[in-house]
Design a protein around this nucleic acid. Structure first.
Lengths: 211, 211
DNA sequence: CCCGATTATTGCGCACTCCGCAAAAATTCG
DNA sequence: CGAATTTTTGCGGAGTGCGCAATAATCGGG
C-alpha cells in the first residue's frame, strides 16, 4: 500500500542493483556495438541474470537504456523541490538542472572516452531510442509539473502553466544536450543549459545577430 | 536525386493513397479495439494490401499511427513559412498552428463520436504510442527549426535558438492537446493553443492566481 | 500500341522480442 | 527453524520486422 518509501531490506537493494546493472549493461553494449547488434540475451548475461529476468525489469531494450535518463530527470525534480521557496522560479530551475548536470559531468572525465562519445552520438541518433528517450522525458515531466505547480500555486489539472513549464524545460534540456553532443570540441553543457533557460524565461525573443 | 517534388504520376498517387489508407486504418482500429488488439494483419486487410506490404511503408504499428501527426506538423511548418516575413515570430507561429488545427477541427464534428473521443484518449495514453508520437514530433521539429532559423536569420547549427523555439512550440502543442483531451466538455483547442503560445512568448511568468 | 526497364507488391522464412504461466530458488519474519 | 512472500528462471507461443527472390504493375520510348 505504501507508495515510495525505501524498506532498505536486502531484497530491495538487490533489486535496485540488478536494475541498475541491466540498464548500465544495455547502455554500454549499445554504445559499443550499436543498438541492433545487442540482444537481450547479451544484456542479461552482462548483468548476470537470465534473459527472462530482463523482461521482469524492463519492457524492452530501449526502456532499459532510457531508465538512467529517467533517474536523472527525477533527481532534477527533487532538486527543484528542495530549493528555497522564495527563489524565483527560473532561477531555481536553472540551479536545479545545473547542479545535477554538473554532477555527472566531471565524474568520469577521461581522455580515452573519445570513442565512447562517438558511440553515444550513434546511440541517441537511433530512431527506436529517440522515441524511448522522449517517452521517458514525458513520464518525468508530469512529476516535474507537479513540483512547479507546488511552487507557483497553480493546479496541473486546470492550468496549462505547470505542464507548459515542464515541457519547455524538458525540451530545452534535450536541445542543449543535443547541441552539446554535436559540438566537436565539447564545451560545458552547463553553459548551454544556462543559456537555454535564460532564453526561455525571456520569452524566446528573436536574438539580435551576434555574428 | 530530386528531394521532394511531386511527380504526380499514377504510381506516386497510389503509393500516397496506400500510405494514408494504412495509417488511417491503423488509427481507426486502434481507437476501436485498443492498440494491443490490433494486428498488422488486420491493418493490412483493412487497407487492401498484404501484411508484408505494410512493413514496406511503416516500421511498425506505432509509426503508422503517428504518420498523420507528422503530416499535420509538417503542414504547420509550411504554413509558417508561407506567413509574411514581417509578421512577428510568435504571432506567425500562433496563426500558423491555429490555421491548421482549426482545419481539422470542424471537419467531422458529429455528436456520435463521443465514443471515438474516448478511444482516442485510450490511444494517446498507450505507452508504446506516446513514444511514437514524441518521436514523430521530434522528427518534424528539425524542419520547424529550419523555418524559424530562416525567419530570424539564425543558424540551426550554431545557435540554440531555432531548436529551442521548435521544442517549445512542439511541447506547447502537446500540452494543449493533452489538456484538451482531458477536459470533459471539450472546448476549443484553438483557445488553449493561443493561451499556451502567449505564455511562452512572455517567458512563462508565474501566473497570478486567476481563481 | 507494345515492349523492355523500372518499381511496387507479395509470400516465405527466420531471428528476435515480449509476455503468461508455473516450478524452483531466495528472502523475510514470526 | 519453517512457513509465507517474493523473485528468478525456463518453457512455450503469439507477434513483429525485415531480407530475399519471384511476381505484378507502371512507366517511357519507339
Amino acid at each position: 500500500m505504501e507508495s515510495d518509501d525505501v524498506p532498505s531490506g536486502l531484497r530491495e537493494r538487490k533489486k535496485r542493483e540488478t536494475r541498475i546493472a541491466l540498464s548500465w549493461a544495455a547502455i554500454r553494449l549499445t554504445v559499443e556495438r550499436g543498438f541492433d547488434n545487442v540482444r537481450v540475451e547479451d544484456i542479461a548475461a552482462e548483468a548476470g541474470v537470465s534473459p527472462r529476468t530482463f523482461n521482469n525489469y524492463f519492457a524492452g531494450k530501449g526502456e532499459a537504456i532510457a531508465a538512467r535518463q529517467v533517474e536523472r530527470a527525477r533527481a532534477i525534480a527533487e532538486e527543484l523541490r528542495a530549493r528555497p521557496a522564495d527563489e524565483p522560479l527560473w532561477e531555481a530551475i536553472t540551479n536545479a538542472a545545473l547542479a545535477r548536470f554538473a554532477l555527472g559531468q566531471d565524474s568520469h572525465r577521461e581522455p580515452a572516452d573519445q570513442q565512447w562519445v562517438e558511440g553515444v552520438r550513434l546511440m541517441v541518433s537511433e530512431p527506436a531510442l529517440q522515441g524511448e528517450f522522449l517517452k521517458a522525458a514525458a513520464a518525468v515531466e508530469a512529476e516535474f509539473a507537479a513540483v512547479v505547480a507546488e511552487r507557483t500555486g497553480t493546479d496541473p489539472e486546470l492550468d496549462l502553466y505547470p505542464k507548459l513549464v515542464a515541457a519547455a524545460v524538458g525540451g530545452a534540456m534535450a536541445v542543449a544536450v543535443e547541441h552539446w553532443l554535436r559540438t566537436e570540441p565539447p564545451g560545458a553543457v552547463t553553459d548551454l543549459l544556462r543559456d537555454a533557460f535564460a532564453q526561455l524565461s525571456q520569452g524566446l525573443p528573436t536574438p539580435r545577430r551576434t555574428t
